[in-house]
């Protein structure tokens, strides 16, 4: 009788812990995006990536569609290349799309904003491994302040 109740409550306890683990995995650490086969890769060259990091979000109009996979430096012209994995279900971005590095809030996280371009006949969709040509670099606060002081003189 008594041990039945204890076993039941231990079961409930384990279920609670599993629920907590699932919540941390799915809602907090977001494991779903890293799965294989559900994503494709887009690349972009920036002059300056500012504070962008691996696993930073890629957003379209505020909706996260992917993450930054890796950030490398191109060996011939020394510009950073960012490769992003984008969810397969968003695979219809036209070639004319542009990406820019944005900041949430004044000092918040940096993320990549993807701006879908116009699409018309003769313009293909971006496919796995393609480069997004139209990029806007991160706003670097020091540069901005420098420009501001310089133009004052």
């Amino acid at each position: 009788m008594k041990s039945r109740k204890a076993e039941l409550l231990v079961g409930v306890f384990v279920l609670l812990a599993i629920a907590a683990g699932l919540m941390l995995a799915l809602k907090v650490a977001n494991q779903t995006m890293s799965g294989k086969g559900e994503t494709y890769v887009l690349k972009a060259k920036f002059d300056n990536i500012g504070g962008l990091k691996v696993r930073s979000a890629v957003k379209v109009g505020g909706v996260t569609v992917g993450r930054v996979d890796s950030i490398t430096l191109s060996s011939n012209d020394f510009t950073p290349i960012v490769s992003m994995s984008i969810a397969k279900k968003y695979d219809k971005f036209p070639e004319t799309s542009s990406v820019s590095i944005l900041t949430s809030g004044l000092l918040g996280e940096q993320y990549i904003g993807l701006q879908p371009g116009f699409s018309m006949d003769g313009i293909k969709d971006l496919a796995d491994g393609d480069f997004v040509e139209d990029t806007k670099s991160a706003l670097v606060l020091e540069d901005l302040i420098g420009q501001f002081l310089f133009s004052k003189k």
Binding site: L24, A25, K27, V28, A29, N30, Q31, R55, S56, A57, T64, R67, S104, G108, E109, Y111
Partner: peptide
């Protein structure tokens, strides 16, 4: 933003 910052291996 939590999702883009928290890493499973490193943090959890």
């Amino acid at each position: 933003i939590m999702q883009s910052t928290v890493e499973w291996n490193k943090d959890v």
